[in-house]
Amino acid sequence: MLNRLEELRKERGIKQEELAEALQVSRQTIGSLENGRYNPSITLAFKLARYFKLSIEDIFIYEEEPL
């Protein structure tokens, strides 16, 4: 799933380690989220939204696959 995580993080001058620490996840999880290799659970998605003070839809871009 596409997301703006890296963009938002860099805008605020936050390192991956700092974001991981704040969300109580590993730095590797943040890295995998940013490059789209891993999709977060709904709980983690909410935590990210709350951290950045945005909605989930502002961070994650859901694109329906063509039928």
């Binding site: 991981a20 109580q24 996840v25 590993s26 659970s41």
Partner: peptide, 11 residues
């Protein structure tokens, strides 16, 4: 503890 309980690690 954080790394082992991390959701991606568990998955």
């Amino acid at each position: 503890r954080i790394d082992s309980g991390d959701e991606r690690s568990m998955a």
